[in-house]
Amino acid sequence: MTPTPTAQVKCAAFWGHDGKALAAFYADALGWKVTQTFGDAAAMISDGTTTYVFYTAESFTAPNWPEDELVFHLDLAFDDVAAAEQRLLSLGATKPDHQPGGEHWTVLLDPSGQPFCISAIGR
């Protein structure tokens, strides 16, 4: 029997209407840095261990959430969720009316209209 090779995720990629702006939003949201740009088409962010790259897709359409299935979804955890929500809203996130998480998590939409959740660390 051949052993299963081990691997690690090197990078996750996301698409939006403006990859560089989306990278800047998530870098600010996470306290990370934009580490590389690729012209106007893409930008990469990292904390030194995890890397995300955001691409511009001219034909991008945000999901009509919650009706549409999601292509990706991030859950972000913070020490102070209320302060994080206010900061994320000031960075360009929006808060939809539909909030299925109750007291457990809050759904926000990033600047490209894609949902992500915030919750308390350890929850």
Rank of each mutant, 00 (worst) to 15 (best):
P100C: 03
R87G: 00
Q99S: 10
K95W: 08
N64M: 12
A93R: 07
L109G: 02
P96F: 04
W65G: 11
F54I: 07
P96W: 05
T37D: 13
Q99I: 12
E69L: 14
Q36I: 04
L89H: 11
F72N: 15
K95P: 08
D47G: 07
D110I: 05
D28C: 04
P96R: 07
L108R: 04
T106C: 03
N64A: 14
D79C: 03
R87E: 09
L30V: 02
T61K: 15
S90Q: 12
G39Y: 09
L88M: 06
P66Y: 08
A77P: 02
E58I: 11
F78C: 02
P96N: 11
A57N: 15
V107S: 03
G101D: 10
L109F: 09
D40I: 08
K95S: 09
A41N: 14
P96D: 13
I45W: 03
D28L: 04
A83R: 11
R87S: 14
T35M: 04
G101K: 05
A42Q: 14
Y55V: 02
A83G: 13
A29L: 00
V34H: 03
L74H: 09
D40E: 15
A82Y: 05
T61C: 11
T94S: 15
P111I: 05
S112W: 00
V53F: 05
E67V: 13
A41P: 02
P66F: 07
R87V: 07
A29C: 04
E58M: 13
E103H: 10
K95T: 04
T56Y: 04
V107Y: 00
Y52C: 08
T106L: 13
K33G: 00
G39M: 10
V71R: 13
T51Q: 14
A83E: 15
Q36P: 02
L70T: 13
A43W: 03
D28M: 06
F78A: 11
K33Q: 15
S46P: 06
A84W: 03
L74E: 07
A29W: 00
Y26S: 00
A62C: 10
F60D: 06
T50K: 01
V81T: 14
T49F: 09
A42R: 11
A77R: 05
F78S: 02
P96H: 09
A93Q: 06
S59H: 14
D79F: 03
A57M: 14
V107D: 09
T106Q: 12
V53G: 06
T50F: 06
L109W: 01
G48M: 10
G31P: 04
G92V: 01
H73E: 13
A93K: 08
E103F: 10
W105M: 12
A43M: 12
L70N: 10
A82W: 00
G39H: 09
L88H: 04
G39I: 09
L91R: 01
T61V: 14
D79I: 06
D97I: 08
E85G: 06
T61A: 15
P66K: 07
L88T: 01
F78I: 05
W32M: 03
A29R: 00
D75A: 08
F72A: 15
L109Q: 07
D110G: 04
D80Q: 10
Y52K: 00
T50Y: 03
S59C: 09
T35W: 01
D28G: 03
